[in-house]
């Protein structure tokens, strides 16, 4: 474990908690893409099946359970509890255009053709594009609540920190996972546009305007 991976995990946890609390406190999921949250729940489900097969550390197990729990809780709040506030008219990204190619790629490009490894690879590829419905929704509505932009900032920061973690592990431990690195680079690049706006817009006004 190194400081970059730890900070990355905490940033990821912060993002997940920020979103869950935002929906719970405001009792509204306006401006939130339910589709992205479903994709994240799918990412965690397919990646953390090894909870049932191997124990790595208390930290590892605890975080996985928290991630899965919060992901499903968020999906529940969006599609069940606060369904009335779900903005389905703007959450129209065709997720099948993500899931199908990612599923096919996971079969073609993986480290090992075993069910667990293919599901892990699927989750890595899916995570890199899972935020697209949310970014698409924001571009359609033309704005995002400040708290949502903090959520996106920490979510984007987490994988950027993981990229540094992978450089660190390659240099100090000789570890190298090409699939995770390439997907992580793609994932982080998708946030670049948002990062630019997040930083340049600062805290001006209550809503951030993102160009379409």
């Amino acid at each position: 474990m190194n400081i970059f991976r730890l900070t990355g995990d905490l940033s990821h946890l912060a993002a997940i908690i920020i979103l869950l609390l935002k929906i719970w406190k405001t009792r509204s999921c306006a401006g939130i893409s339910g589709k992205s949250q479903v994709l994240f729940a799918l990412v965690f489900t397919t990646r953390y099946l090894d909870l049932l097969t191997s124990f790595i550390s208390l930290y590892n197990t605890t975080m996985k359970i928290i991630y899965i729990g919060c992901a499903y809780a968020t999906v529940y709040l969006i599609y069940m509890k606060f369904k009335a506030t779900y903005d389905g008219n703007h959450d129209t990204f065709r997720v099948e255009f993500l899931v199908v190619p990612v599923g096919g790629l996971a079969f073609l490009v993986n480290h090992d053709f075993s069910p667990l490894e293919i599901l892990w690879t699927f989750s890595i590829y899916l995570e890199s594009v899972a935020i697209l419905p949310q970014l698409f929704m924001i571009s359609k509505t033309g704005e995002a609540e400040t708290i949502t932009t903090h959520y996106l900032f920490f979510l984007g920061l987490y994988r950027a920190l993981y990229l540094i973690n992978w450089i660190w592990r390659f240099y100090f431990e000789g570890f190298f996972d090409m699939i995770a690195i390439v997907a992580g680079v793609v994932q982080t690049i998708l946030y670049c546009d948002f990062f630019y706006l997040y930083v340049t817009k600062g805290e001006s006004g209550s809503n951030k305007i993102n160009p379409a």
Partner: peptide, 10 residues
Amino acid sequence: ILKKKKKDEL
């Protein structure tokens, strides 16, 4: 060669 790390990352 690409050394596969054990799945110790989240």
